[in-house]
Write a protein that binds this DNA or RNA. Structure first.
Length: 823
RNA sequence: GCCGAAGUGGCGAAAUGGUAGACGCGCCGGUCUCAAAAACCGGUGGGAGUUAAUCCCGUGUCGGUUCGACUCCGACCUUCGGCACCA
């Protein structure tokens, strides 16, 4: 029993019998089997596949039953709908479970999947299980490896150094999730950033194309988040001279979007991780710099970039010369500069950048105004001036408007060979390496003679050994597995060692939607014909939490595969809708937080149809909300009432001579079909269900009034059952038989509405005086503007409220209202 | 901190420039019952008013645009999602 508030636990129609009955029948009859050869137009409706954490929680049901209802609706609208399901089966949790409880990740994952399949079946979704995709099987992940090789052979995968979270005590790499307040979750030791060689995909090569959302119909907020994430900025790279130090480079490059302020540079700041830091630091400053770099390694990026945090830094003892004015400025190290953005160093212009300003104030560095604010009197600035103004203290550029100075100085920099215009992106290349076992092995070997060698395609898959040991030693189980690590070089046959990093699970989810079209295909990641017939996905649904990473990675993959000649389209997901998050006690549900609400007890109690209806009714699908079951009884009452309406014998109504009553019921039916059709199309399930509830109330009232005939009653009942079928698939199937429909309700066309039959004869004209409601007048729907104005001005209420005032204007909104402006 | 959203009755919500609170929950009253539950019928934003007519107030806060603002604009407050190794 889920809670004590659930009293209507016996559905009138016996959900415990009918739900399994129809579930088995559908499966036996292949009602949801999807054929590639179906003559109807295709519709690929995909919901983001779940991570098999063990149980589907009520949030999964909320997301998946909405997606299923929409897919069912599209099928009834005449499409051949592919609505598949699978499991995102690699990842950290399985490995953690293995370390904790000794269960192998494969067994843990597969038993979770089995349970979740059972739950999904109980939900009554229209998945074609023959197309299921499970990413941790060699049949799937060999194609991750194959795709990696295609990217690698085309210069889109490379190895480079990058920092990882490192626990010095456990001697292990930690996920961000495993770092709690800068400490290791297992042993509480302070976590540091450590540089390691890792694999990257070159997503930044596609940055400009990824900024283009014109070919997809996505929520504007998602496009905006992606645009901000990619963070394109145009600027200038300009070199500062360090030839006095006799290093192997004579200058250091900084990237700036404000080259107009370059004469105001009073210092240079390097990121603490920058390789030049050690080379430039003088002996006197070495101890202070090393200490500072050490503390920077203990901070997260979010901490470092906080604009609230007091800026800190340290002098290296070295100087660089600003080639534009010959000025020698100090080089400092500060943690607000990131190695990963731009060139990993910035020019400090305190007068015109707020972070630099605060930094300069703190360390007593000069602040020189080079862009005069419009009404500037020459006094000291209280804060950085970041607007446009006039160039001052800028040599030959003095007097120019700063917008022009920007262009002229950039030209000057280019002409003198000091640098040039450049574009930078906040987005970084995609780091796919994970120092873990439960993922796809990266198909590379390292040979003493040949170096880095790609595993030939014919050798794939590089199998994940199933006898790895899960010891809390810190080393990846793969690195400890001698038989896996030691291999022979595919080129020279000599001894070689395998790469032991595995791939980020986002690699799996970047192309899984292509696999559903041909899930058992053996000659490639997908059958090109089937994949291109079904793809791109027409409607993608999933959580807004995937706004940037997953959705950008998948877009990148499709574009890269297109350029490799594997696909002929540009975008993976044509239309995107994000359902909201179901939280519990204001927190996102997750197994690790222990606040998971399982649907199973509710399903047992009131049935899947009622749970689906409640989830779809509780609010807008795109909004989500805090879970409580306060209203679930109301849904059981409604489904019971509909069942009871269906039990009535329409013959009792006979024929009716009350044409108005019959017309009213028929009008209600057609209005409801129109409303529900529009709402289902746009995922507005809550208002669609409300319209169906209103209609079932109308039906009951009509029955009690006894003034409608059997014909319109039967039409109405059939329409209602069809409209309910995407939301309550089991009950609708049961009722469809009772109202004389032919099995299966899920293979019927969606009901059509007739605008003429839905049209109102009379409407309520709202009459306002100065915008305040003063009267309501029933008028014919086709009332003329003249008549509407006349009838409004004739109203006693209007006369009362305009007494002693002059009527200045009368505003008429056709079919809605008249507003009398008086005063 | 940065980026993106959301704030409406006792509760979930509806209305995206035109009747604020549809639909449902809860609650109150009634029918049925020996009684209760279930079910069914009616009422239900707050205040004033003769149980009336009617009037006033009311959509996070403050200000603006408009004949008219929950809806558009500006500032602020609170809550939620993401921030690159949770997926």
């Amino acid at each position: 029993m889920a809670t004590e508030t659930m009293q209507a636990s016996r559905t009138a129609y016996g959900h415990r019998d009918i739900e399994p009955k129809w579930g088995e029948r559908w499966e036996r009859d292949g009602v949801y089997t999807v054929s590639d050869d179906d003559p109807r137009p295709k519709w690929y409706e995909l919901h983001m596949y779940p991570y098999p954490s063990g149980d589907l929680h009520i949030g999964h049901w909320f997301a998946m039953s909405g997606a299923d209802a929409h897919a069912r609706f599209m099928r009834m609208k005449g499409f051949n709908v592919l609505h598949p399901m699978g499991f995102d089966a690699f990842g950290l949790n399985a490995e953690n479970a293995a370390i904790k409880s000794g269960v192998h990740p494969y067994r843990w994952t597969m038993s979770n999947i089995e349970n979740m399949r059972r739950q999904l079946r109980s939900m009554g979704a229209m998945y074609d299980w023959d197309r299921e995709v499970v990413t941790c099987t060699p049949d799937y992940y060999r194609w991750n490896q194959w795709l990696f090789l295609q990217l690698y052979n085309n210069g889109l995968a490379y190895r480079d150094g990058a920092p990882v979270n490192w626990c010095p005590s456990c001697q292990t790499v930690l996920a961000n999730e495993q770092v709690i307040n800068g400490q290791c979750e297992r042993c509480d030791s302070p976590v540091i950033q450590r540089e390691m060689e890792q694999w990257f995909f070159s997503i930044t090569k596609y940055a400009d194309e990824l900024l283009d959302h014109s070919k997809i119909d996505w929520p504007e907020r998602i496009n905006l988040m992606q645009t901000n994430w990619i963070g394109r900025s145009e600027g200038v790279e300009v070199g500062f001279d360090i030839s006095e130090y006799g290093l192997d480079q004579d200058s250091i490059d900084t990237f700036t979007t404000r080259i107009d302020t370059v004469f105001g540079v009073t210092f240079i700041v390097l990121a603490p991780e920058h390789p030049l830091v050690a080379k430039l630091t003088t002996d006197e400053q070495r101890e202070a710099v090393e200490e500072y770099v050490e503390q920077a390694r203990r901070q997260t990026e979010i901490e470092r970039l906080s604009t609230e945090k007091e800026k800190t830094g340290v002098f290296t003892g070295a100087y660089a010369v600003n080639s534009l004015n010959g000025e020698r400025v100090p080089i400092l190290v500060a943690d607000y500069v990131l190695l990963s953005y731009g060139t990993g160093m910035v020019m400090g212009v305190p007068a015109h950048d707020q972070r630099d300003f605060e930094f300069a104030k703190k360390y007593d560095l000069p602040i020189r105004v080079v862009i005069a604010p419009p009404d500037w009197d020459g006094s000291e600035l209280e804060e950085a001036f970041i607007g446009e103004g006039t160039q001052v203290n800028s040599g030959e550029f003095d007097g120019l408007p700063s917008s022009e100075g920007m262009e002229r100085i950039a030209d000057h920099v280019e002409e003198r060979g000091l640098g040039g215009r450049a574009v930078n992106y906040k987005m970084r290349d995609w780091l796919i390496s994970r120092q873990r076992y439960w993922g796809t092995p990266i198909p590379i070997v390292f040979c003493d003679d040949c170096g880095e060698v790609a595993v030939p395609e014919s050798y794939l898959p590089v199998l994940l050994p199933d006898d790895a040991e899960f010891l809390p030693t810190g080393d990846s189980p793969l690195a400890l597995h001698q038989e896996f690590v030691n291999t022979t070089c595919p080129d020279c046959g000599g001894p070689a060692k395998r790469e032991t990093d595995t791939m980020d699970t986002f690699v799996d989810s970047s192309w899984y939607f292509l696999r559903y079209a041909s899930p058992t295909y053996h000659d490639g990641p997908f059958d090109p014909v089937a994949a291109m017939e079904w793809n791109p996905v027409d409607q993608y649904t999933g959580g807004v939490e995937h706004a940037v990473m997953h959705l950008l990675y998948a877009r990148f993959f499709v574009k890269a595969m297109r350029d490799l000649g594997l696909l002929d389209f540009d975008e993976p997901f044509v239309r995107l809708v994000n359902q909201g998050t179901i939280v519990f006690n204001s927190q996102k549900m997750s197994k690790s937080r222990g606040n998971v609400i399982a649907p199973d007890d509710y399903v047992e109690d009131v049935g899947a149809d009622v749970v689906r209806t409640y989830l779809m009714f509780m609010g807008p699908w795109e909004q989500g909300g805090d879970w409580n079951d306060n209203g679930i009884n109301g849904m059981a009452r409604w489904t019971n009432r509909v069942w009871e309406l269906c039990q009535r014998d329409a013959d009792e109504l006979g024929e009716s001579s009350d044409e108005a009553a019959v017309g009213n019921l028929r009008r209600a039916l057609h209005k409801t079909i129109r409303k529900v059709s529009e709402d289902m199309e746009r995922f507005k399930f809550n208002t669609g269900i409300a319209a169906m509830m209103e209609f079932s109330n109308t039906l009951n009232q009509a029955w009690q009034a006894g003034n409608v005939d059997a014909k319109v009653w039967r039409e109405s009942m059939r329409g209602l059952v069809l409209m309910m079928s995407p939301i309550t698939p089991f009950l609708a199937e049961e009722l469809w038989g009772q109202v004389g429909g032919e099995y299966s309700v899920h293979q019927q066309p969606w009901p059509e509405w007739d605008e003429d039959l839905a049209a109102d004869e009379m409407i309520t004209l709202v009459v306002q005086v100065n915008g305040k409601l003063r009267d309501r007048i029933e008028v014919p729907a086709d009332v003329s503007e003249e008549d509407a104005r006349a009838v409004a001005l004739a109203s006693d209420r209007v006369k009362q409220h305009t007494e002693g005032k002059a009527v200045r204007r009368v505003i008429y909104v056709p079919g809605r209202l008249v507003n009398v402006v008086a005063g």
